[in-house]
């Protein structure tokens, strides 16, 4: 590796544009948002102004955000994301396992089948799911065909969780697949040879050794679920809002941008907290290995 001072021209040519882009179109907007979250709408000539703010004037937005109605939305986002993550894990683990232990020529095809939906537009997939779930949707048509009772799950909690699982399942499959694939199968053989049952082998050998993949998968599903608003908006409706919907609403109809900014930062802090927990967990597991 070269030291940057030895090739200043090359270094600056390569670095400038990317750093500039990140600074101007990521850091500066985030800075704006941060300032706004401590601001209030200015009163001009006795009327609340649309565009002017009193910057750094208040922490009222955070105080409001800590009010029960918004904490409920955050709590709901955490709870539903957790449920969706667990469902994803329970589905994806056996699936990734099945792929890893299938005939080598089938492996890439099976894996591709599981992760292909990830490439299809999120909105198209949600729209497809709506067409299945709505009152005259394909699910009810199919149920009617077999003379089974109709369901009405669209615009309910279960539809939101189903939507989250539907959208984020591929995120769980990929890391699980890559760790299970690397797993040394002779450990499993040794365990079974020495008389451990299949469940015992799973709990004491397979699961601990594939834990890094499990943790990565949980992070990859939980974090986007936490910040999602599209799924709960389209599949859940107004009674099933998560924190993301509240942010969208404040920047849209409710038109209280400072408050929306405060909610955004609360969501970001929650996300960073999850990442922090993950870093702690991996550090600890490294310690055990060493």
């Amino acid at each position: 590796m070269d030291y940057w001072k030895d090739f200043r021209k090359v270094f600056f040519t390569l670095m400038t544009l990317g750093s500039f882009w990140m600074l101007l179109f990521f850091v500066v907007p985030m800075g704006f948002l941060f300032v706004l979250s401590f601001s209030s709408k200015a009163i001009v000539n006795g009327e609340t102004s649309i565009l002017d703010y009193n910057y750094f004037s208040t922490i009222a937005n955070y105080v409001d955000a800590a009010g029960s109605s918004y904490l409920v939305l955050l709590g709901r986002a955490v709870l539903w994301s957790a449920i969706a993550t667990i469902v994803c894990l329970l589905l994806a683990y056996p699936l990734a396992f099945a792929v890893c232990f299938s005939a080598p020529k089938w492996r890439p095809i099976l894996l591709l089948l599981l992760i292909l939906p990830f490439w299809i537009n999120l909105l198209i997939r949600t729209y497809a799911l709506i067409q299945v779930l709505r009152t005259n949707g394909f699910l009810n048509q199919a149920l009617g065909f077999f003379h089974l009772p109709q369901t009405d799950i669209l615009f309910g909690t279960s539809a939101v969780i189903m939507g989250l699982v539907y959208v984020y399942l591929p995120f769980m499959v990929l890391p699980l697949y890559s760790t299970i694939e690397k797993l040394d199968k002779s450990y499993l053989e040794a365990s079974l040879d020495l008389g451990a049952s299949q469940p015992r082998t799973f709990w004491s050998i397979t699961l601990p050794l594939t834990m890094p993949g499990v943790i990565t998968g949980i992070i990859l599903v939980f974090i986007p679920c936490l910040g999602s608003f599209l799924t709960s908006d389209l599949l859940g409706g107004p009674n099933n809002w998560m924190i993301g919907n509240a942010i969208q609403n404040q920047f849209g109809e409710a038109n209280n941008w400072p408050f929306g900014a405060a909610l955004s930062f609360i969501l970001m802090y929650a996300t960073f907290f999850v990442l922090f927990v993950r870093a702690m967990l991996t550090r600890r597991s490294k310690g055990v290995d060493a």
């Binding site: 990140m22 500066v28 985030m30 974090i223 910040g227 993301g244 942010i247 941008w257 930062f265 970001m268």
Partner: peptide, 20 residues
């Protein structure tokens, strides 16, 4: 720092850009 756009919730980046 480069990984930030990957981990920050999309909606937060979206509203920050809208504001900007």
């Amino acid at each position: 720092f480069l990984a930030l756009p990957i981990v920050v919730p999309e909606i937060c980046m979206g509203v920050a850009l809208a504001l900007f």
